[in-house]
Design a binder for these strands. Sequence first.
DNA 1: CTGTTGATGCAAATCAATTGCATTTGGTGG
DNA 2: CCACCAAATGCAATTGATTTGCATCAACAG
Lengths: 160, 160
Amino acid sequence: MKGPCSQHTHRHRLIQPSLTDLTAQLRRNSRKITASRQAILNVLRRHQHPLTNREIHAALAGFECDLATVYRNLNTLEEMGMVRRFDFGDGVARFELLTEGDDGHHHHLVCTRCSTVVEIEDCFPAELEAALAARHGFTQISHKLEFFGVCPECRVQKLA
Amino acid sequence: MKGPCSQHTHRHRLIQPSLTDLTAQLRRNSRKITASRQAILNVLRRHQHPLTNREIHAALAGFECDLATVYRNLNTLEEMGMVRRFDFGDGVARFELLTEGDDGHHHHLVCTRCSTVVEIEDCFPAELEAALAARHGFTQISHKLEFFGVCPECRVQKLA
DNA sequence: CTGTTGATGCAAATCAATTGCATTTGGTGG
DNA sequence: CCACCAAATGCAATTGATTTGCATCAACAG
């Protein structure tokens, strides 16, 4: 474990969805406002980094619920467009809370040693999507882009 | 299943590694030239698309070996830099044979319905890596980029 | 030909994620 | 405040990809 990676987040979400917004969004989708759901959303609201189901489950304060419930809820929240799922290729899904109207499209720079995550706004591939559509006849094109490398902390650790 | 996706490959590898090159590469890494190994490499040589362990195992002609052996061999071949692993986010690893000296860096456009794969040469993110290194102090930066969409065949199927 | 080392088969173990099922609970209309 | 229904949950069992322990085999170097 390394300390809180304060300075590591490049893109700071300006608007953090409020609890009332979130419950409204749930209600609109005829989803129940359960204690587990609120606890999970609170964990996500407190973290600006992508979290795994297990991490979310571990971070639940006060209210405990089954890990399966966390899994089910994150799938539901993803379907409703309230969270975005990321895949860093390590076989574990990670999630970030989205603000309404924001599709949360961005990418990450992940340290291959300590998994520190930096958010990246740049997204050249988006410019390519139209070209690819024209060239290959594909429609509804999207993409996933993740960067990997060794973060400054890990580099010095190696030297020490 | 759809027929052989002949015209789907955009980037055709000009040099397909020869069997002798491959065995030489194995020998150089003090790896034994076993029948399973040869059979696996032959499967990879015959396909220009990324294949899963299971697909490779199923495509083994004549020589049969355990699925665990296929898994072990692809890990070994990846370590040796003879194959490249791809991750389309569906929880299954895929592999492509590499030519020596070619790091096989490229990306894919995957149909979200039938999994048809088109190779993509364009790679804007590479230009970004240096900038990211400077901006965030990361080193040894690499990236993974995959495009997803609905291929022409699947689009018409939907209409039919 | 023979020893050493890597490779293999087979079964069991991991690990993330999902699911069946009985039970509980939020939200709604009385 | 009460009754009802759909959604949600706990718990255990399952799935599916991938890995691993272990005993046996087979390359290949000398």
